[in-house]
Computed example of a mutant assay.
Amino acid sequence: MTALPLKTLTFPVTGMTCAACASSVESMISTQMGVEKAEVNYATQSVKVAFHPDLIEPAGLQQSVQSVGYDLIIDAIGGKEKQAEAQQSHYRQLKRNITWAIILTVPVVFIGMVFMDTPYANYIMMALTAPVLFIAGKNFFINAWKQAGHGRANMDTLVAMSTGIAFLFSVFNTFYPEFWHRQGLHPHVYFEAAALVIVFIMLGKLLEEKANSNTSSAIKKLIGLEPKTVMLFTAQGTVKQLPNAMIPKPYRLALI
């Protein structure tokens, strides 16, 4: 049976928010059987893959990327439009999550910094912090778990570990303060710190996604300025009109 020729395709990627994300996507695809080479372009949010179609298909590449918390758009038609739509949807969702996460975090900070002696202050802060971490910030924990399943770690891992440990330690001190009292220590809680970390990281992601969206849009517009048709002047004095993609880059002459 004759092996199918090597195929090279470019797929839009969704869910990448940092250079480490791009590295994770690239290394994950590169380790798949049948993949010769994978190159992620973080600026255009895409990956160029050279693979053997008889060993792996685009659906297999997509599954490998999904297993670490990202996604590939493998549809040949309208891939860029679907990527832009997914990015806009994620941006709006992130903006909504930040809005009500801030609303819940503000009273937690005031109670933790000013009204810490208020009756049931720890219980109130715990009730307000839990949805900030595990609803608004759930993607940090989901992505960290997926990364851990492959023996990897990224920024989500750091955020999930730091805020999760701070929250669990504070919960323990809220329900069992006598453990520290017996040792002559005061049972401090860190609900406000955990909530603030989630809010600040999410705000940073929001600003980064907005900046990346503007940069990607500018790059795509620049790429779109490439001439679609050229006039080829041969050594014999003849003139041919050919699609730009058929001419080597050093010889692309003019826009028609």
Rank of each mutant, 00 (worst) to 15 (best):
S30T: 09
M125F: 02
H181P: 10
L206I: 00
L158H: 11
G15W: 06
A193D: 01
L185G: 05
V132L: 04
P131D: 03
L104S: 06
P131G: 07
V239C: 03
T2R: 15
I201C: 13
F167A: 03
R152H: 09
K95H: 13
E208P: 00
K221L: 12
N244F: 07
N41K: 13
F115A: 11
K7Q: 13
T14K: 06
Y251E: 05
V49D: 08
L196P: 01
I124V: 11
K138E: 11
V239T: 15
S217V: 05
I201D: 04
M161Q: 08
A194Q: 05
L207I: 07
T157L: 07
A38V: 04
G164M: 08
A235M: 11
Q88W: 14
T215Y: 12
T2S: 07
K48G: 01
K146W: 01
L207V: 04
K205I: 00
L196R: 03
T234N: 13
M125R: 07
S67I: 02
K37P: 00
A195F: 13
W145P: 00
I201N: 06
V230W: 15
L72E: 05
K221P: 10
F134V: 09
F134Y: 15
I247R: 02
V65H: 11
G137M: 03
T163W: 10
Q241V: 15
K228F: 06
L222V: 06
A50W: 05
A20D: 00
F169M: 14
G78M: 08
D71F: 04
L222E: 01
A235L: 12
Q87L: 07
Q32S: 11
Q63G: 15
I103C: 04
G184S: 01
A194G: 05
L72H: 14
S216M: 12
K95C: 07
N143L: 02
Q83R: 12
L55A: 14
T118G: 00
S27F: 02
E226N: 13
K249Q: 12
E26T: 07
I142R: 10
T174K: 09
